[in-house]
Simulated assay, not measured.
Amino acid sequence: MERRTLLRAAALGGSAALGGTLWRGAAYAAPAQPGAGPYGPLGAPDANGIRLPSGFTSRVVARSRQTVPGTSYTWHDAPDGGACYADGTGWIYVSNSEISPGGGAGAVRFSSTGAITGAYRILSGTRTNCAGGRTPWNTWLSCEEVDRGYVYETDPWGVKAAVRRDAMGRFKHEAAAADPVRKVVYMTEDVTDGCFYRFRPTTWGDLSAGTLEVLVAGSGATSGPVTWARVPDPTGATATRDQVSGAKRFNGGEGCYYADDTCWFTTKGDNRVWQYNAAAQTIELAYDDSLVPSGAAPLTGVDNVTGAASGDLFVAEDGGNMEICVITPDDVVAPFLRIDDQSGSEITGPAFSPDGTRLYFSSQRGTSGSSSGGITYEVKGPFRS
Rank of each mutant, 00 (worst) to 15 (best):
G118S: 15
V151Q: 04
E145K: 01
D87N: 01
A131N: 15
I99K: 00
S124D: 06
A105P: 01
S97Y: 01
G158E: 03
R109H: 04
G90C: 11
N129H: 04
C84N: 01
G90A: 13
D155Y: 08
Y85E: 12
G106C: 08
L123C: 06
T128E: 08
P79G: 10
A119C: 14
G102T: 05
G102M: 13
N138E: 15
T154Q: 07
A131F: 10
W157E: 08
F110M: 11
P79Q: 03
W91C: 05
S97Q: 04
V146P: 03
G118Q: 13
S100A: 13
D147V: 15
D80R: 00
E145I: 10
Y150S: 06
G90S: 12
G88F: 09
G88D: 11
A105D: 03
L123Q: 01
D87V: 03
S111A: 15
G149E: 11
C143Y: 00
G149P: 12
V108W: 01
K160F: 12
V159A: 10
I99H: 00
R121T: 13
G114T: 08
T135Q: 04
P79F: 06
P136C: 14
G88P: 07
S111E: 10
I99T: 09
V94F: 01
N96D: 09
Y93R: 09
V146G: 01
A131E: 11
W157M: 06
D147I: 14
A107I: 05
T135Y: 02
G81Y: 09
N138M: 13
G102K: 05
A131Y: 11
T128V: 09
L123N: 01
G104V: 11
W157Q: 07
C130A: 12
P101C: 12
I92E: 06
P156D: 10
D155R: 06
A86M: 07
G158M: 01
T113M: 00
R121Y: 00
R127L: 15
R127F: 14
K160I: 15
F110P: 07
T89R: 09
I99C: 05
G81S: 14
T139V: 05
D147Y: 10
R121N: 10
A119M: 12
C143D: 09
R148D: 14
T117H: 02
G82Y: 02
D155W: 08
E153N: 05
T154K: 06
G103N: 04
I92T: 13
G106N: 04
Y85A: 12
V146M: 08
T139Q: 12
A105S: 08
T113H: 00
W91Y: 13
S100G: 07
E145F: 00
A131V: 14
I92K: 02
W140P: 02
N138C: 13
W137P: 04
A115V: 11
A83H: 04
W140D: 03
